[in-house]
Simulated scan of single mutants.
Amino acid sequence: MTEPTPTAPAAPTEAGDIMSWDDLFGRTQPQTDIRIAYGEGDLQFSELWLPEGDGPHPVVLMIHGGCWQTDIAERDIMNWIAEDLRVRGIAVWNIEYRGVDREGGGYPGTYEDVLAAGDSLMQNWDRYNLDVEPIVAIGHSAGGHLALWLAARQSAFTGQPLTGDVRLPISTVISQGGLPDLEAGILREGHPCGVEAPRLMMGNQPELTSPQRMPAAMARQILVNSDRDRIAPPEYAEAYRNANLARDATNIELVVIPDEGHVELVSPGTDSWNRQVELIEEALDR
């Protein structure tokens, strides 16, 4: 099944089963009241989860998934883990963007949104007393592709095409059950995300859109996957890692969590999320 929108009703799973989206959405959803626009469109904004205290606050840049489609998921699918990081003293810059099912989405619009959201973070860090040296970027599912792409984009910062104003100081990128290989995605008949969404995201430009076809990211890449994930099984991450190792990109590792699925990756209290918290805090030297 594809990822439902965050308004789905709760329905508990049986003991020993993996989580469903209903299990997560049945929890009270945290909210933040800080929204920063980076464009004029309804989906061109980020939400800041700001810890208590004066700071400076370390930062995680967060990118939601949903098969690159706004109708499937928006940024609030990440609210639970954003709040979990906030109460740990870590600020979260949770970005929204146009999916392929919205005007201007796909290539190049979705990428331009991600770049503009990153620029907006660097333009506002002083206002909110954020510590952006370094930044950890994380993304779930399709957002994992975008997070890995953003890290690779910093290594290929040429100014053209897909111009962003600043180079983000991303030291570590975490792909949470990501779908990084768009070319492989186009060939996955029967996959819940379908083949049209990755095709629209690639736009016949794999060297600009698929991270393994771009210059290798300088950031440390951590692929966190759950072994019962039916959307992004560990084999996808292993293939991506092997493609990078074949071109001597050694700063990439695969972490597989047993007995959990796709939803656990963005659900506080799970083994998958607890391991990611450890990795984030390590990357931020906390």
Rank of each mutant, 00 (worst) to 15 (best):
G41H: 08
A142T: 06
A91D: 00
D22C: 11
G194K: 07
T172A: 11
T28P: 15
G194F: 07
T7C: 04
L50P: 12
F45T: 00
Q276A: 02
T28D: 09
A15V: 07
R220D: 08
F25H: 11
W273R: 03
E96N: 13
D181H: 05
L187G: 07
T32N: 03
E40N: 09
N94S: 12
L245N: 11
R247C: 07
E253N: 06
I36E: 09
L223N: 03
E83A: 12
P161C: 08
G269E: 05
A73Q: 14
T209W: 02
Q29F: 04
R230A: 11
Q176D: 06
I77S: 14
E74V: 14
L223V: 02
M19T: 06
P180D: 00
Q31R: 13
R220H: 13
L48K: 05
V87C: 00
P234A: 08
N251R: 15
P56W: 08
T250H: 11
N244E: 12
D54R: 10
H64C: 03
D119Y: 02
L61M: 12
L146M: 11
L168S: 02
G203I: 06
H145N: 11
G185P: 08
W93P: 04
H191I: 06
A11D: 14
H191V: 05
D271L: 09
E238N: 07
E207W: 13
N251Q: 13
A217D: 02
G144C: 08
R102L: 01
E260N: 09
D181T: 06
H140W: 15
L168N: 03
A283N: 11
G177L: 07
V266M: 10
I135L: 15
P56T: 05
E133D: 14
W49F: 02
T7W: 14
F45Y: 15
P198D: 04
P258H: 09
R230P: 06
G65K: 06
P9E: 08
Q154L: 02
R27K: 14
T2K: 15
R220F: 03
G190I: 09
L130K: 01
Q69M: 14
L85Q: 01
G65Y: 06
P134E: 04
N129S: 10
V224R: 03
M202C: 15
Q205T: 05
W273E: 02
N94D: 10
L208P: 04
A8I: 10
A91R: 00
E52D: 09
P6R: 07
H57Y: 01
T270E: 08
G190R: 02
S46L: 03
A11Y: 13
D17F: 12
V87P: 01
E253S: 13
I170P: 04
T5F: 15
N244L: 15
G105W: 00
E238C: 01
F45M: 08
R35M: 12
P30S: 09
D126Q: 15
E264S: 10
Q212V: 05
C67G: 12
L245F: 14
G105F: 02
D285F: 07
L146E: 01
D84Y: 04
M201K: 02
E282Q: 12
W21H: 09
E112D: 10
P233F: 14
V255N: 00
E281F: 01
S141E: 07
T163V: 10
L85Y: 05
D126N: 08
V173S: 02
